[in-house]
Amino acid sequence: MRAGYVFSEVATGLRRNVTMTIAMILTTGISLGLLGLGLLIVKMTDDTKAIYGDKVEILIYLTADQSKEDPNCLQPLCSGLLTELQANPEISEVYFESQEQAYERYKKQFANQPAMLEIATADALQASFHIKLYDPQRFEVITQQYGDRQGVGSIQDQAAFLERLFVVLNGMRNATIILAVIQAAAAFLLISNMVQIAAYTRRTETEIMRLVGASRWRTQLPFLIEAVVAGLIGAAIAVGGLFAVKTFVLDRTLGALFRSGILPAVSTADLVTVAPILGGAGAVLAAVSAYVTLRLYVRI
């Protein structure tokens, strides 16, 4: 069997059912695009965990007055608090960060964003204690013990904030994957429909093939390849769509957060990693749908 001959049949077949082929390609593309988005969110969640990982701290912010009055934590109120924290059996690590140090860290974090640097001064930031717990779940103990102490402004648990972020990210991932599955079901049915129409259009050909003794595999191959080619085109559209979303939406709206390292950026490399997965998923979806349809509905 000559490959060129089979592919010329495939090209003819795709052209013959062009409206159905386009519908099927677009549906597959949307399904795979959503799947790709889901995968990128998974990657983003993992990267966020990696960025913050063991850096997650509890921050005891001192009041603005206290921060200004005792910038280096030398007076009894602040140093006493520090000694107490160091002695606390729940706490594994603690250090003091002055307004000046907080400002330096801020400047480093937003080095690429002059606008962010302009709005902040050292005075606007508070001095704080950075705390790591042996058991990060026991955040409440710290709030109870130190929340009402003199000189303490507020207590922030970064882990709780991250947890909320992960809930949002996981929710988005689940929603995109559910939508991807629904779209995939639609794509599956459209592929099946496309194959049935193609088989009907070419019934004389398939009948002759059957009568002259072409193998079942040979008779089905053009239909399978047609479906797989359409699936791969759908995957290419999905990858193109993801690239457009990255370039024109994510990079424009979240670029600042990406550059400052607060959120992990979606890189071109991430898309390159996702592309073959989408290609494979598109090809398998199309091939399985076409194969099942040929087995069940088309007499060959």
Binding site: M1, R2, Y5, T204, E205, E207, I208, M209, L211, V212, G213, A214, S215, R218, T219
Partner: peptide
């Protein structure tokens, strides 16, 4: 086996020689 029918069953989009070659192409 070979089969011939009342309605010829030729492929209308192929020439005479392509119609005959088709029967050989598809069996490799």
């Amino acid at each position: 086996l070979g089969c011939v029918f009342q309605d010829f069953r030729l492929l209308q989009n192929k020439t005479v020689d392509q119609n005959i070659a088709f029967a050989l192409e598809v069996i490799g």
